[in-house]
Amino acid sequence: MPVNDFTYSNAGLALTEQSEGFRSSAYQDSVGVWTIGYGHTGTDVSAGLTITSAQGQALLASDIAAAATFVNQAVTVALDQDEFDALVDFVFNLGRGAFAGSTLLKELNAGNFSGAAAQFDLWDKAGGQVLAGLLRRRQAEEALFTQDTTTDSSTGAAVNS
Rank of each mutant, 00 (worst) to 15 (best):
G128Q: 07
D89P: 07
N93M: 05
T151M: 02
L60R: 05
G156I: 00
L131S: 08
S19H: 11
P2D: 15
S154C: 06
L131F: 10
W123P: 03
F6R: 05
N10E: 12
D85M: 05
A68Q: 06
E141Q: 07
T16C: 12
E83A: 09
S19G: 13
A66Y: 01
L60P: 00
A68Y: 00
S161C: 15
V31P: 14
F22L: 14
V71L: 10
E142L: 14
Q147Y: 03
T150L: 07
G128R: 07
A78L: 15
L59S: 00
A118F: 05
G56P: 04
G101E: 07
T43F: 01
L59Q: 01
D44E: 08
V75D: 05
S24P: 15
A14F: 04
F120M: 13
V31K: 11
T69G: 11
A61N: 08
S24H: 15
I51D: 03
V33N: 01
W123E: 04
S62V: 10
Y38Q: 01
F6Y: 15
Q119M: 06
A140W: 11
G111R: 12
A117I: 09
L13P: 00
Q147E: 11
V91E: 07
E83C: 09
G21K: 01
Q55W: 05
V45H: 00
S62M: 03
T155V: 10
S154K: 13
S30D: 11
S114T: 11
G39E: 01
V3D: 14
Q57F: 08
Q18S: 12
L15I: 00
I36F: 02
A157W: 11
Q55H: 09
Q18F: 14
D29Q: 09
R138S: 10
G101H: 03
A68H: 02
T7N: 15
I64L: 13
G127W: 07
D80Q: 13
S114G: 04
G42E: 06
N112D: 07
K106C: 08
N160L: 15
R136N: 10
V159P: 05
V130C: 12
A157P: 09
V130T: 13
E141D: 02
Q73R: 13
